[in-house]
């Protein structure tokens, strides 16, 4: 029974090879363990030595994998920090663009048209920070208002 159990364990170990030298050690254990189970002290020592080596190889591999995973964890944390900072500055940039190119021109045009409708003939669109397209719209609105004022005067 013990021999069968040992053989089953060796089979399981053979199907679970992940490291270098593991296969070789398993084969050496396979050679020695039968003699060890029959009471051969030298074979027993060899078997214990090989099993210890097999165990040690796997323990080292776990430590290495652990170190790698810790490095990944640190790298991941830094990635999240830089990503969050990047998204923050990107958000700030787009907020500024949104305000400068959409909201402020809309408010300016609305204010100018309201002023004109309530009798202020001199209020015109202005905004040196505006993009060219918005400045073009300002100019056209100002020209319409100029023409309207000139028409009213004549």
């Amino acid at each position: 029974n013990t021999s069968n159990d040992f053989e089953k364990l060796l089979e399981m170990a053979s199907e679970n090879i992940t490291e270098e030298n593991e296969g070789e050690l398993i084969e050496q254990i396979r050679v020695y363990y039968k003699y060890a189970l029959n009471g051969d002290i030298e074979a027993l020592e060899k078997t214990v030595e090989k099993i210890s080596s097999l165990s040690e190889i796997n323990r080292k591999a776990i430590n290495t994998a652990d170190k790698v995973s810790k490095k990944f964890a640190v790298a991941g944390s830094w990635f999240v920090v830089f990503w969050a900072a990047g998204m923050f500055f990107l958000g700030m940039y787009y907020k500024r663009v949104f305000l400068k190119d959409i909201i402020y021109p809309y408010e300016e045009i609305n204010a100018v048209l309201n002023a004109n409708l309530t009798g202020d003939k001199f209020r015109r669109c202005s905004g040196h920070e505006a993009i060219d397209e918005i400045n073009g719209i300002y100019s056209k609105i100002n020209m319409i208002l100029d023409k309207k004022s000139a028409g009213l005067e004549s």
């Binding site: 159990d5 992940t18 189970l37 165990s55 323990r59 591999a61 776990i62 994998a65 790698v68 995973s69």
Partner: peptide, 28 residues
């Protein structure tokens, strides 16, 4: 990370097998 976890799991299983072999040898 899943790959690393897989490696750790496999090696841990091998260590478990080694421990069972030791137990069998001690019984003898």
């Amino acid at each position: 990370a899943p790959a690393v976890q897989n490696i750790i799991h496999k090696n841990d299983r091998s260590i478990g097998i080694c421990e069972k072999m030791f137990v069998l040898l001690i019984k003898v």
